[in-house]
Design a protein around this nucleic acid. Structure first.
Lengths: 200, 200
DNA sequence: ACTGACCTGTACCAATTGGTACAGACTACC
DNA sequence: GGTAGTCTGTACCAATTGGTACAGGTCAGT
C-alpha cells in the first residue's frame, strides 16, 4: 500500500523544519518526535534507514516542490519573463520573506554535503540551467544568461544568510526585487539590450 | 600572564575548522581534542566555559582578522578602489577560493544564531558600513553605495554556498571578479556614473 | 468474528555527549 | 632546591545519542 508513503508525507514538513533549525547533526530523534508528535516507533517504521533516510526524503520532497513550482514553469511557460517573475514570487513565499532558510544550502555548507552530494548538486544545477533557459527566451544573450542565472542563485542564497544574520525581515524581499530588475529586461529579439525599468 | 591567552590562540585555528566542518552542534569535544591534539584537560583549562566559550573565542578571532585585514583598509586606505580590490583579494585568500566556508554565515543559519546574535550581526553590519564608506569614496552616489555593499556581501556569502554545493572550485573566484567589475568604477567626483571597464 | 498485516508507544541498548575531579607533571620565582 | 601555581592526561559522571525489540493496538479483507 501507499499507506506508509502517506505517513511519510505527513511527517516530512515537520522533519524538514527540524533539519532546518538544527542542521543534520543537531537534528536528534528526540527533537523529531517532539516536532512531529509521532513516537519513535512510528518514525523508524516510516523511515527504516533512520536519520539519513529522513534527510533524503526531506531533500527529495524539496526537489519535488521546486520542480513543479519553479523549474517546470521556467521551462514551459510561454512567457519567459512571467515565469521568472513567478519564480521570484514563489521563492519569496517559500522562504517566508527570508525568515526560513534553504535546507539544501545549509547541507551544502557542512560535512553532510558529501553524504547528499548528488542531490545537492542537482538542486543547484537544475535551478541554474532552467533559469538560464528562461533568461535566453526572455531576450538575454546566451553566455550572459548563464552568468546571470548563477549570480541570481548566489544572490538568493546569500540574501537568506544575510537576512538571518541581520535579523532584518525587509532585506530578502528587497534583494528579490532588485533581482527582478536585473533579470527581466524590456528588450525585444531585435534589440536585446539589458535595460532596467529605471533607465528607459 | 598572557600564557593562557597564548594557549587559546594556539588552539583557535583548529577549533575554528571543527566548527566550520560540523557546525555548532556537531562540534563534539572528541573532535576538538582530535583536531587540536590537546587533551580534554587542556581544552577546559583554556576555555572554562566549554563549547560556548570556544565558539565565542573563535568568532572573536574572526572578527579581529576581518577588522585588521579588511575593515580598517576600507576605512583608512587613501585609495578607496585599491582598498576594495584588496578586500576582494583577501576574501579570496581567506575562503581559499571558495573551498572554505564562512563560519559566521553558517552560525547565522542555525539555531545557534540567537546565542551569538550580537557578534554575528556586528560582523555583517560592520562589513556593510565600511564597504559602503569605501564605495562612496570611490565615487558611487550615497544611496546606491549602501545597496551595492549589501549586494556584494550577499553575493560573497551566496557564492560560498553555491561553490560548495556544486563542488566547483572556479565558481567563487569568478563571482569575485564579477564583483570587482561592479564595485570599482572609473568615475570621477564630477562624473559619478557607474561604468564597467568593458563599457568605456 | 477471525485473521493477518501494519502501526506505534515503551523499554531497552551500547556508544557518545558535554562536563567535572583530580593526581601528577611541569614551570617560574625566590 | 623548595614551593606555589599552572598545566594536562585519565578516570569518571549523568544525560543524551541513534537505533532495536517487541508487545499490544488498529484496521482491512474475508
Amino acid at each position: 500500500m501507499g499507506e506508509k508513503a502517506a505517513v511519510r508525507n505527513r511527517l516530512l514538513p515537520a522533519l524538514g523544519e527540524v533539519f532546518r533549525a538544527y542542521g543534520y547533526e543537531g537534528a536528534s530523534v528526540a527533537r523529531m518526535t517532539a516536532a512531529t508528535g509521532a513516537g519513535k516507533g512510528s518514525l523508524y517504521n516510516a523511515f527504516p534507514g533512520g536519520k539519513e533516510e529522513m534527510a533524503q526524503a526531506v531533500l527529495a520532497s524539496i526537489d519535488r516542490w521546486f520542480e513543479t513550482a519553479i523549474f517546470q514553469p521556467l521551462r514551459d511557460d510561454p512567457s519567459a519573463p512571467q515565469a521568472i517573475r513567478h519564480m521570484l514570487a514563489q521563492v519569496e513565499l517559500y522562504f517566508e520573506s527570508g525568515q526560513r532558510i534553504c535546507l539544501v544550502g545549509l547541507f551544502a555548507l557542512g560535512d553532510e554535503r558529501d553524504r547528499f552530494a548528488t542531490r545537492i548538486r542537482a538542486y543547484f544545477a537544475t535551478w541554474q540551467s532552467t533559469l538560464t533557459q528562461a533568461l535566453v527566451r526572455a531576450g538575454h544573450p546566451q553566455p550572459a544568461a548563464s552568468t546571470l542565472a548563477e549570480e541570481a542563485i548566489a544572490t538568493i542564497q546569500g540574501a537568506l544568510v544575510q537576512a538571518r544574520a541581520m535579523q532584518d525581515t525587509t532585506l530578502f524581499p528587497r534583494a528579490l526585487s532588485r533581482l527582478a530588475a536585473r533579470l527581466i529586461t524590456v528588450s525585444t529579439p531585435e534589440h536585446p539590450f539589458v535595460l532596467s525599468p529605471k533607465e528607459r
